[in-house]
């Protein structure tokens, strides 16, 4: 078991954005979380990545209780995420975005910088390696000197994935990575996600678009009103009356985007 949550609850005042959620993902698995708008999917990510901490319940990652751990420590442990509303370091270059993501794997300090120590020079070399490797992975190495915010939308989403890879994660959390993409970009994204899977990353994927989820997820978890209402193989979930009522019923085609 790579990640496990026990009765995780997150309350904002009276509103329970997450209510007693039991969730788990194994090594190498792809699990999708689906659910209508405002059902608490992003909140769940915020809680497990430490950006906001759970009101009650427990989050265990690689056997460690991370419920109240700081986000940077959780990243160091090997969990990394993308954001629903892209959060790149917009005024920096694409390559610099990757270099920053290397932070959690390096240990140089001010002194190394000032005397340009061996550690510092090693770091610069490996950074360059990672810039190449991670940007190649998502196919935007040729854009490495671009200012990140000038990239087309689809590439910004891909840069977020590259940046996640640069932290050398074992668990990747994607928050609606296909939002706002055209069909062609979506296909490319699916390709990247499948490649991640074959490279043995574990992935949690939040996605509105049912179709995409059905294609890549091995297991689907359904949220509604902060609760986990269903879980199972994609086909099972798709035909689950509870899900159809609460999710597909409202979302009509199931193709909606945020």
């Amino acid at each position: 078991m790579l990640l496990e949550t026990h009765k995780v609850t997150k309350a904002f005042g009276g509103l329970k954005a997450n209510s007693e959620i039991d969730f788990h993902i194994d090594e190498g698995e792809i699990v999708a979380i689906i659910g209508p708008n405002g059902s608490g999917k992003t909140t769940f990510y915020n809680v497990i990545t430490g950006i906001s901490s759970a009101t009650s319940g427990q989050v265990v990652f690689k056997g460690k209780d991370i419920t109240h751990m700081h986000p940077e420590k959780i990243t160091e442990l090997g969990m990394a995420r993308t954001f629903q509303n892209i959060r790149l370091f917009g005024n920096l270059t694409v390559a610099e975005n990757i270099v920053i993501a290397r932070h959690c794997r390096r240990h140089t300090g001010i002194w190394d910088a000032v005397v340009n120590s061996k550690r510092q020079r090693d770091e610069i070399a490996t950074n360059e390696e990672f810039v190449k490797k991670c940007l190649d992975y998502v196919g935007i190495y040729d854009k490495k000197d671009w200012i990140a915010k000038n990239l087309p939308y689809g590439m910004q989403r891909r840069l977020e994935i590259a940046r996640v890879l640069a932290t050398e994660p074992s668990l990747i959390l994607l928050d609606e990575p296909a939002a706002g993409m055209n069909p062609h970009e979506k296909d490319e994204l699916v390709e990247i996600i499948l490649r991640l899977k074959s490279d043995n990353y574990s992935i949690i994927l939040i996605e509105h678009a049912m179709r995409m989820v059905m294609n890549i997820a091995e297991r689907v978890v359904v949220f509604d009103h902060g609760q986990k209402i269903a879980e199972g193989k994609p086909e099972e979930v798709k035909n689950d009356p509870v899900v159809i009522e609460s999710y597909l019923g409202k979302g009509a085609s199931g193709n909606g985007t945020a």
Binding site: G50, R87, V99, I100, C104, T167
Partner: peptide
């Protein structure tokens, strides 16, 4: 670069391990 990341986006900086 850690300073730059914080200047650009604190939440993303945290998420990147800073």
């Amino acid at each position: 670069y850690a300073f730059a990341a914080i200047r650009e986006d604190e939440i993303a900086a945290e998420a990147m391990g800073i």
